[in-house]
Design a protein around this nucleic acid. Sequence first.
DNA 1: CTGTTAGCGCTTTCAG
DNA 2: CTGAAAGCGCTAACAG
Lengths: 345, 345
Amino acid sequence: MAETGKEITIYDIAQKLNISAATVSRGLKDHPGVNKNTKRKILATANEMGYRSNSFASNLRNRKSNIIGVIVPRLNSNFMSDVIAGIEKVVNKAGYTLFISQSLELMQNEVSNAKAMFNNRVDGVLVSLAYDTTNIEHFEFFTKRDIPVVFFDRVIEHAKYPSICIDNYKAAYSLVSHLIEQGCKRIVHISGDQRRNVYADRTRGYQQALKDNQLPFDKELLIVNDLTKESAIAAAKKVLGMKPRPDAIFAANDYCAVNCILEIKKAGLKVPGDIAVAGFNNDQMACVVEPHLTTIDYKGFEMGEFAARMIINHLANPGELQNTHSLILRSELIIRESSLKKPAI
Amino acid sequence: MAETGKEITIYDIAQKLNISAATVSRGLKDHPGVNKNTKRKILATANEMGYRSNSFASNLRNRKSNIIGVIVPRLNSNFMSDVIAGIEKVVNKAGYTLFISQSLELMQNEVSNAKAMFNNRVDGVLVSLAYDTTNIEHFEFFTKRDIPVVFFDRVIEHAKYPSICIDNYKAAYSLVSHLIEQGCKRIVHISGDQRRNVYADRTRGYQQALKDNQLPFDKELLIVNDLTKESAIAAAKKVLGMKPRPDAIFAANDYCAVNCILEIKKAGLKVPGDIAVAGFNNDQMACVVEPHLTTIDYKGFEMGEFAARMIINHLANPGELQNTHSLILRSELIIRESSLKKPAI
DNA sequence: CTGTTAGCGCTTTCAG
DNA sequence: CTGAAAGCGCTAACAG
């Protein structure tokens, strides 16, 4: 804990102890085959002199940054902050640090963030795609240099890139099946950009559930927008004007679902009596809106852990075949009042 | 855009162009006094060969990381993601990148994050304090080496550290005054850890508003907890049991306020008829709960920009006296139904 | 168990 | 305007 502003190097320690810098270097990283006693002395003086290792020098030497990059659309959800916490846990334990950035849902930012990470020589990248990303050429830089890239949640199917997400198809299927069990016969689905797996798969699950229950699907029942509050309200208005009026809405996220509920109630109709509503994600908001929202829950922390582990494993065994090409995590249907057309059993 | 996995260095470019590495280095960073033509050629071949500058080498040489660290309690709010976006904007424009980490409200994590940043030689640090941080010795490492540290939102008063936040006292004062204008006479305040300025100042504003309006304050009216959902519900229950029953609750954040509203309604009372409720932060949730929540709005993006600018300025003019010691940003009272005891004018 | 040595890739005097 | 050379701090052979 020196007071001085001068940076201490291993040479300073070496000099003070009358040993070589190499030994200090070894002692500092617990190299097997360094005398216990000298090791102890090295650590002690290092501490005493206020030494901190210079990661630039060691990274330069090792050609390795010990940094993992993370690119997400936005950080503003509980889900995402859980994911990050999960990633952080695994990654820190393995001696890496994180370099986080948000694309703010724009491919343009995603590309420039990816470049910044590339130039900062991250050892691996975790990505959840922006809303409008149409291709993933900006990640080829990494694969060309054997830097692992793993997609999570908002993923893309591509032989080169492992991914991790829930089974959005199945989750949506079970949710819509539940609505149908409740007696809903004309179910609208409000979704986001169909280029994103999370939305496309939920749409497929929705359609299949209708089909399997002999419910007709027509184009009017599928509304695709950007899932903002304004779009949600507009969509709800549209639904209210449809003839015959739908008796349920399945929104692709909770924020949209919640705003639909508010709009429906504003129009003087009952949820779920007139129109049942369900969402996706189990956001905090789901329990704030009244009636509470039926939704799909899945664990961000867990997803973060798994995704990070994929990267770390790859880094630990670079030669090894990347056999875990995709991972599907579990999700769970959470039934709350907003969908219960008949009284719960 | 070379296909190869081999890293290109300035020497490779130099060799190909039959010039020296020094010139390449200069050309690459637009050094004044390099022939326009050679500069052009350098850039062209660099690009063609797939060169990327090695930041380790240049950081090692320059003793500068071009990284700004950010430590926040959690990333899971709109507010925080806005702050980060604001910081990112300013910081990227100045050629820096961000190193973000969350303390998850624990001082223990804050300390280890600070150490990690110190060891990674960040050029500056932006901090919003954890819930339970009792001292800030873990930032002394930075100040000792003249690395600027700026606190935002959850700040601490300390001569060494500039800070940026809103006037929590005034905001709370105006909010409580509004409740009083609505006819509320017995107002409970639910707050968080009083060691954090944001909570302590709001409490002071609340108490002063009572005083200035000749309303009595007694200890029972101030409830301090951790502002989780469970605590909010417990607090609401306590309020409902008080005799005489309070006619308003001012919660130190929206999440707590929202959960109080839900609990009050569950008990069969009306908001604001029986009990008016107000929160703080203008979270998305404020417009989801019914009735919509009266609250205080302040702009995270702006706060992020200002805080980042403080750091960048300091970095640009290291000698210059840091005259902007504290900055107070504006905030705004947002009146919604949850507090309107008498009809709006 | 420890020391010597040679770079990792870049920047920056200093000299032309 | 350009080049030669030294060194930022660390690590990994290699040799004892």
